[in-house]
Design a protein around this nucleic acid. Structure first.
Lengths: 132, 132
DNA sequence: TTTAATGATACCACCGTAGTATCATTTGTC
DNA sequence: GACAAATGATACTACGGTGGTATCATTAAA
């Protein structure tokens, strides 16, 4: 059970690297030199970040990516949501007809508590805070 | 991202039901009457609990399952481990050669913090505590 | 015009979860 | 002893999400 998928992990590391170079523009090739991981995957990840509005992109020679949102404002939880969907640890796995205790389910309650704790943390971590 | 799989969820609910009837012996058929879920799946789940030493089983007519370990001592975290493996949210997803920061990785550190919080909770919840 | 970069998109492989099927074994009851 | 009701053991299938690949189009600098 991993909290992050590789995709999210890649994204975070790429952003940290980029933040170290900012405001310089960084290309996929630059990133690959530092983070040795599958090239097409890295590209896809960066494209996702661009589409989501975190990064600006410039095509063509000497192109690459730069921040549209500053690293201080890029929150880990949002990246997780982007790549994995919302952190929701306690969705009832039973069909509604079966589980009559949707609101009072004690198990669900415990999980939700844990989820809240996790979310509290994940929302406080930013790309910038991870650089130290 | 779910903290529990269905399997674990089934197990917990079955155990709660059984704890309500204890020390009476309960058969798969009894459980299915209450928790309407796939029969073969329920059976497999109970067998796993029996093999793990939580339940005693009696074959043959009027057979069924009963507790070997009391519900007060059956811990949610252990059930998760049994059905899903250890809760380890922060395994480094990178190949070791790539990730040079195994011990100092700031991302890992954050995740491990969350993991500890979750584990603290999961280890404090028992089948008995879920009955209230 | 060439080349280096991203944009977009479709595709494949693997693995874990969920669920099914089947036969063997035990034991109470008639 | 035969039958029925229960578990023991095990092998199999289906599906979806994650991880990863491939390809072609587009842009812009040299």
């Amino acid at each position: 059970m991993n909290l992050l998928t590789r995709n999210t992990d890649y994204a975070v590391r790429a952003l940290i690297y980029m933040a170290g170079k900012a405001p310089e523009r960084v290309s996929t090739a630059d990133l690959l030199r530092d983070l040795r991981l599958p090239r097409p995957f890295m590209r896809k990840t960066l494209q996702t970040l661009q589409k989501a509005g975190y990064l600006d992109s410039v095509k063509g020679k000497n192109g690459g990516f730069s921040f549209l949102i500053s690293p201080e404002k890029i929150v880990l939880n949002d990246l997780i949501v982007l790549f994995q969907g919302p952190v929701s640890m306690g969705d009832c796995l039973f069909r509604k007809k079966v589980c009559s205790c949707m609101r009072t389910c004690p198990l669900r309650k415990e999980i939700k508590t844990i989820e809240s704790l996790a979310l509290g943390h994940l929302r406080s971590v930013t790309v910038a805070s991870l650089m130290r």
